Computed example of a mutant assay.
Amino acid sequence: MADGRKDPADKAAPSDHSGHRDRLRNRFRKTGESGFEDYELLELLLFAAVPRQDTKPIAKALLRRFGSFAGVLAAPPKLLTEIPGVGERVAEHLKVVQASAVRYTKGQVNERAVLSSWSQVVAYVKSAMAHSDIEEFRILFLDKKNGLIADEVQQRGTVDHTPVYPREVIRRALELSATALVLVHNHPSGDPTPSRADIQMTKQIIDIAKPLGVEIHDHIIVGRFGETSFRGLQLI
């Protein structure tokens, strides 16, 4: 660590964990992730960053603190290091795993037309945004064949508000020659129910976009407890 203190992962620990680790790895080879509880899969992830310590208590403490496997990966490094046994190296390792998961799901979207891979689109935006502790407003810019031109976070706000400027959204769409958009934002509260402000902002974007030949395919709100589609709610 930068301040000269030892990372908790470097602490000496009993040497009889190798058998447990080998058994867990062998189970994974046989069953894959489907045969594992969340804490066990988290244990496996921690093996690489915690070489000489029992990772089960750490994994269970992380899950208790952050609520879910996804919540652990999305947690800010500062909060991760508040958990006993989690130092900067462990926190960095978990953030790399999260970044890898987001990159993988984004690749699934990039490989095919957005509207024909809707489940991958939802999986991607949830992995990227659902557990963020601030609101973010993201736009997927599409071409005439619904292929992804660009994926951009337009605004970042506070825990319960993101400023969105409808004319700037459409200006950027015209710059990219996009013919359709998918709007996405997150609710850090976890509840993906659209607010009155969300509905009003979406209507403003649609009203500006329509005369310019830009279609709003959907507005998706994601949260820890699910996602909401404006089109599914017939708000578009």
Rank of each mutant, 00 (worst) to 15 (best):
R29W: 07
G213V: 03
F28Y: 15
T202V: 02
K210H: 06
A70F: 05
R103S: 06
F47H: 14
L148F: 13
F141Q: 00
N146V: 02
P8V: 08
Y165V: 05
K60A: 07
T55A: 10
R138V: 02
T228P: 04
L140E: 01
R21I: 02
T158I: 03
R196S: 14
G19D: 15
T31W: 05
L183E: 02
R64I: 00
A13S: 14
A180P: 05
D207G: 05
G85M: 08
E215M: 01
Q53Y: 06
I199F: 05
I205T: 05
V184F: 07
S189G: 09
L212V: 03
R112F: 08
R23I: 11
D10N: 07
Q154Y: 13
R52Q: 12
H93M: 10
L140P: 01
I139A: 00
I134F: 10
M1P: 07
I83W: 06
V97M: 05
A75F: 09
D3I: 07
N146C: 00
A75G: 08
I216N: 00
S100V: 06
R23Q: 14
S229K: 00
P194M: 07
R52V: 08
D38L: 09
D22V: 13
K203N: 04
S132C: 10
L46A: 05
L42Q: 11
P166R: 03
Y104I: 00
V102Y: 02
A180N: 04
I205V: 12
L233F: 01
A13D: 13
Q108L: 14
R196M: 12
V121E: 02
K78D: 14
I134W: 05
R29F: 10
T193A: 11
L148C: 12
Q120I: 00
S15M: 07
E168K: 15
A99I: 00
M201V: 13
R23D: 15
L44V: 03
S68A: 03
D10R: 08
K56L: 11
A59T: 06
D191H: 09
R65T: 12
A150P: 00
S119I: 04
S100D: 09
P188H: 13
S117T: 12
